[in-house]
C-alpha cells in the first residue's frame, strides 16, 4: 500500500515495529523517503508519527524500554545494526524539535556547538559557518549584532530558527522536523515554512505536523498515520485531493482528529 516516490530513496524502513514496553507504537511501517524532497507525516495525536521520525536518527535510543524490530535503512545501511555509528548517523540526519531547545549558551555558541564537537577549532571557519547557517535559517539579520547574547533571550520563533541554524551548521543531508511550528505564532510559523521551502533545494526534509494545511503547503509527499500504522503515503496533492483510503479522507476533511 505504500508507493515508492519517484526520486532516489535516502531513508527507508521495511516492516518496522516499535514497542514502548508492552505497547506497540509502530506496526509494520514500510516507507521510502525521497532525497531532496519535503516529506510530511500527518495524523492525529498518538498515531506514532513522531516516534517514526525519531527512528530515523535513533533518538528513541534515549527512551527506556524502547524496542525496535524490522529494518530502518539510511543510504541502504541498516542503522539498527550492531556497531553502526549512531553518532555519525545523527550528524548526517539532523533534527529540529517540537519545543525550541537552544542550549543555555550564546547565540554564537549554539550554532558553533556542532562544528566544535566535530573538531572544528579554527575561529575564522567557525565564524563563517555561524554566519552561513544563520543566513540559511533566515535569522542572521535579526541577530547579527548580538551574537554573544544568550540564546534564551530570543523569541520562540527566533529560537526555533536558531535550532534550525544549529542543525544546518553540521551540514546534514537530512533534516527531521518534529512539529517545529506547534509552539509558534502564525507569523513565526510562516517564516519557518518559507525556510523549509528554501531548505528543500539542498536537504531532504521530513516534517511531522498535525497541521494539515501546513503539510499541504510545504510538502511534496505526505504520509498519513493512524494508530501506529502508515495508512496512506503518496504525493501530497494526491493524498489531499484524491485519498485512496477512506480513513485518510475522513481525517483530511476533519471528521475526526
Amino acid at each position: 500500500m505504500t508507493g515508492t516516490p519517484a526520486p532516489g530513496t535516502i531513508i527507508e524502513t521495511r516492516g518496522l515495529d516499535l514497542w514502548y514496553g508492552p505497547c506497540q507504537a509502530l506496526k509494520e511501517i514500510t516507507i521510502l523517503i525521497p532525497a531532496n524532497r519535503v516529506t510530511a507525516l500527518i495524523g492525529p495525536s498518538g498515531c506514532g508519527k513522531s516516534t517514526l521520525l525519531r527512528c530515523f536518527n535513533r533518538m528513541n535510543d534515549l527512551v527506556p524500554d524502547c524496542r525496535v524490530a524490522g529494518l530502518a535503512l539510511y543510504h541502504g545501511a541498516d542503522i539498527n545494526a550492531p556497531g553502526y555509528d549512531v553518532v555519525e548517523l545523527r550528524k548526517r540526519v539532523g533534527m529540529v524539535f517540537q519545543k525550541p531547545n537552544p542550549f543555555p549558551k550564546s547565540i554564537y555558541e549554539n550554532v558553533a556547538y556542532g562544528p566544535r564537537i566535530h573538531g572544528e577549532r579554527d575561529r575564522a571557519t567557525l565564524d563563517a559557518v555561524v554566519e552561513r547557517s544563520l543566513r540559511s535559517a533566515a535569522l542572521w539579520d535579526e541577530v547579527e549584532d548580538r551574537l554573544q547574547e544568550p540564546a534564551l533571550g530570543l523569541s520562540g520563533g527566533q529560537q526555533q530558527r536558531l535550532c534550525i541554524a544549529r542543525t544546518l551548521a553540521v551540514e546534514p543531508d537530512v533534516i527531521l522536523m518534529d512539529e517545529p511550528c506547534s509552539a509558534l505564532d502564525p507569523i513565526a510559523t510562516a517564516k519557518i515554512e518559507n525556510l523549509i521551502d528554501d531548505l528543500k533545494k539542498r536537504y531532504t526534509v521530513i516534517i511531522v505536523t498535525h497541521n494539515m494545511q501546513q503539510a499541504a503547503r510545504v510538502s511534496e509527499f505526505t504520509g498519513f498515520m493512524y494508530l501506529g500504522e502508515l495508512v496512506e503515503y503518496g504525493e501530497t496533492l494526491q493524498v489531499f485531493e484524491r485519498p485512496a483510503e477512506r480513513l485518510t479522507e475522513n481525517y483530511i476533511t476533519g471528521r475526526f482528529g
Binding site: 542550549f103 543555555p104 549558551k105 544568550p150
Partner: peptide, 8 residues
C-alpha cells in the same frame, strides 16, 4: 544572562 553564568 544564563549562558554567561553557566560558562562561568
Amino acid at each position: 544572562m544564563q549562558s554567561h553564568r553557566s560558562t562561568l
